[in-house]
Structures are given as structure tokens and as C-alpha cells.
Amino acid sequence: MAQQQIIEITPAELIEKVSAMKAQGQRLVQICCSKLPDHLEVAYSFDKDFAFLSYRLTLADTSTPVPSISKIYGNSFHYENEIHDLYGVEVKGISIDFKGNFYRTALKTPFNCAPEGEVKP
């Protein structure tokens, strides 16, 4: 199995780190947000020659905005819109910003609400 690595970074470092990846010719594989009991994690994964590297941001809640990397990687817009729509994380400056209309769901920010708060319409 090929190696994989997760490196913790802060939102302020994000643009710089991602630009460095672009310069190395890495491919943006995915952006993934996870909701954990007391915080949120956003992982940006890159791949080059099967070496898999993820930069991970830890956010206390959705009040901290994350800078968009869509100026560096054009394909990040739909991952960023997904994070915004499903988790309510604010992503600043997405190239194509759907403003919450990328996924139209019955619940608002469905991946970031308590299970008991779910009321079937």
C-alpha cells in the first residue's frame, strides 16, 4: 500500500502550502470535511505518483472562515461548495460560488446538526 501522510496546518498557512503543492505539479484529489464531537476538520488531499498527502485544518466551529483555494486549483470550487452546503463552513472567494444552492437538501447544513434535531418534513 502506498504511503499516506496527514499534516496539521492553520487556516492562515493554507494558501501558501497549497500554492507550493501546485508548483510541484500535485493533483488536488479531494477536500473533505468531518464533523467531530467538539470540532470540525477540513482535509485537503494531494497526490503525485501515488504519494498521498493531506493538509488538515482544525476549526472550532463554523464561525471561522476558510480561504478558498479555487484560484490555485480550479476544481476546488465544487468541494468548497459542498463543504459550505453540508457543514455550513464559510469559504471565502470561491470562483463559482453557488451560495448554498449546490446541494438542495431538506435540512440546512445536514452534516452539521445534531441527530435529534432532525425532523423529517
Binding site: F98, N101, F102, Y103, R104, T105, P110, F111
Partner: peptide, 11 residues
């Protein structure tokens, strides 16, 4: 525009 078959099965 997507979401016509979004089920949310990851949850």
C-alpha cells in the same frame, strides 16, 4: 446543479 439524487448516505 446537483442534488437530485442526494440521499446523504454518508451520514
Amino acid at each position: 446543479s446537483i442534488g437530485f439524487i442526494h440521499r446523504g448516505l454518508e451520514r
